[in-house]
């Protein structure tokens, strides 16, 4: 005993009993960006038993401003985030079992990842994966915590199967497009605030103190000095396809997934959104014109070229990503510029 958890055990709602529970828990973190690195570090320092982290990306210079586990060397080397995260987390606490997966998580991968997991933390950057997390959580009755941030704004909600509404109840539709950290930026206090909301709830779940769960949808804007916390219990829908009585877990079926295909011999990946949509090319033109790259637009499509890639965005929702044969790189670019 070296007392490394003594201050946490002195905190009465956790105590030595809570600490022992924490030691036996397994948390899955989807994404190792700003939220994922922050949450992982807190859990590992807190003495969680085991964490699994999945991410498809590699470290870039633009990550270092807020993704707290990474270094200049890893940006230089383009080290996969999952690998870099594991190295740092191991150095922080060698007692924790750390599983890291360099993978593009979709339904199949998710089914494998959730085995023996007590809690799923959302640290992803898009709603396609969140809807899969949501359905998986309901199917296996594993709680999860939705969290996201952009600019100086953040939002979080804890979803407990069988008790709270699910993300599908709240959203009704998957939000399409919208601003991303790569288009309007992000400041790290917003990241840290979301992590604080997410991790406080995570600790309550892991030490089994469900009475103290927040039970509210929380959002804030640190620059505009806003805070909002609302009870959304009433939004729970009895006929929700994800958590209702006659549920079908629509996002676990192939038809609702974002479909990707490598176009042979063209160094191009095609991505089709999970549901029919019409893109507003004019507003997309405005957003992307602020980026480093060149925008060309006609009534049917918009082309956006950067130094290495070209994205061609069709009005019917399809996107071609030229300059790569890698589905995971294409998805990264897709979500970076299109949300």
């Amino acid at each position: 005993m070296n007392g490394r958890y003594s201050r946490q055990e002195l905190f009465a709602p956790i105590g030595t009993e809570g600490q022992a529970k924490l030691r036996n828990k397994h948390v899955l973190i989807i994404g190792a960006g700003a939220l994922g690195t922050g949450s992982a570090e807190m859990l590992v320092r807190a003495g969680i038993g085991k964490i699994s982290i999945a991410d498809r990306d590699y470290v870039e210079w633009s990550n270092l401003q807020r993704q707290q586990l990474y270094t200049e060397e890893e940006a230089e080397q383009r080290t996969p985030k999952a690998i870099a995260a594991k190295k740092r987390l191991k150095a922080i606490n060698s007692e924790v079992e750390i599983r890291c997966h360099v993978m593009d998580v979709s339904v199949e991968e998710m089914e494998r990842l959730v085995e023996n997991v007590d809690l799923i933390l959302d640290a992803s950057d898009n709603f396609d994966i969140r809807m899969i997390i949501n359905d998986i959580s309901q199917k296996h009755r594993i709680p999860w915590i939705y969290s996201a941030c952009v600019g100086s704004y953040g939002i979080s909600y804890t979803i407990i199967p069988g008790e709270t509404p699910c993300l599908n109840c709240l959203l009704e539709n998957v939000p399409m497009g919208g601003v991303t950290c790569d288009t309007v930026g992000i400041i790290s206090p917003a990241v840290q605030m979301v992590i604080s909301f997410q991790m406080s709830e995570a600790l309550k779940i892991l030490v089994e103190d469900s009475l103290h769960l927040r039970n509210k949808l929380v959002s804030f804007d640190l620059w505009k000095n806003h805070h909002s916390s609302i009870n959304v219990d009433k939004i729970k829908k009895a006929d929700c396809p994800s958590c209702g009585t006659d549920r079908s877990y629509p996002y676990l079926s192939f038809s609702k997934q974002t479909k990707t295909a490598v176009l042979c011999g063209r160094d191009t990946v095609q991505i089709r959104p999970s549901q029919p949509m019409e893109r507003d090319l004019e507003s997309l033109d405005k957003d992307l014109s602020r980026q480093q790259g060149k925008v060309l637009r006609n009534p049917y499509l918009l082309s956006f070229s950067t130094a290495e890639h070209r994205l061609v965005i069709f009005k019917d929702g399809r996107v071609l990503i030229h300059g790569t044969k890698s589905i995971s790189e294409a998805k990264t670019l897709y979500h970076r510029y299109l949300g």
Binding site: D122, D125, A148, S219
Partner: peptide
């Protein structure tokens, strides 16, 4: 009025 909008970044 309280308005809470969903964002995707993380």
């Amino acid at each position: 009025i309280e308005l809470v909008h969903f964002v995707g970044g993380g």
